[in-house]
């Protein structure tokens, strides 16, 4: 005798059963159950009839000028501006640049600009003051490179420094220990 539990299990299979989509063993199980259970047999019949009602519904067709409208829509769609994406923006910038730099009137200016960019750094290196004395402190595992202004060791510059110092000392007596001794 079929139990409520059996009925619940069988009714869960009924939709596939009416489609003939169950494996053989389950089909046999449902067959056996509905042969002795009027409730499940009726449920199977109702589900089958429901599916048949849907299958027998009249088929609807689109309008007769469907293709003509579609052709117009496709043409309109082709002319529609594409939505902005980061990639399309990038491509757009690239496209604009290409257009701009190929303009004949701008070519001489562009040539001068490129020349400045390319030659500029070399010109700067060549015109750099050559008065840097590079010495290396040896005796260290990692040699330290020290750059001293060559001008500091130059005699003329030293004289100038001394002159400035004495001028400063004479104006500031209290600040100069040598002046205090002489007093």
């Amino acid at each position: 005798m079929a139990t409520i539990r059996d009925c619940k299990k069988i009714q869960g299979l009924l939709s596939e059963y009416v489609d003939g989509a169950l494996p053989t063993d389950q089909t046999w199980e449902v067959d056996l159950h509905i042969a002795s259970c009027a409730v499940c047999a009726q449920a199977a019949q109702e589900l089958s009839r429901t599916a048949n009602l849907l299958r027998e519904l009249p088929k609807w067709e689109p309008s007769v000028n469907f293709e003509a409208i579609l052709a117009k829509r496709l043409a309109d769609d082709a002319l529609k501006p594409r939505p902005e994406t980061w990639f399309s923006s990038l491509a757009d910038i690239g496209g604009r640049f290409t257009k701009w730099w190929t303009l004949p009137s701008l070519r001489p200016a562009l040539a001068v600009g490129i020349a400045a960019v390319v030659i500029g750094p070399f010109a700067l290196i060549l015109s750099r003051p050559a008065n840097l004395n590079v010495s290396t402190i040896e005796g260290n595992r990692n040699p330290i490179t020290r750059v001293t202004p060559k001008a500091a060791s130059d005699t003329t510059s030293l004289d100038q420094l001394l002159r400035e110092h004495s001028a400063y000392s004479s104006s500031e007596t209290l600040g100069d220990p040598a002046a205090l001794v002489s007093l």
Binding site: L57, K59, W60, E61, P62, S63, F66, I69, L70, R73, L74, D77
Partner: peptide
């Protein structure tokens, strides 16, 4: 496929106008 797509969309929307419009858009 226009018939099948239209029929599906008609059953989904329940409205001939919407079904026609969405069928057009499907093919676009």
């Amino acid at each position: 496929y226009k018939g099948r797509i239209y029929n599906y969309l008609y059953r989904m929307t329940g409205n001939a106008e919407d079904a026609e419009d969405l069928t057009q858009e499907t093919f676009v």
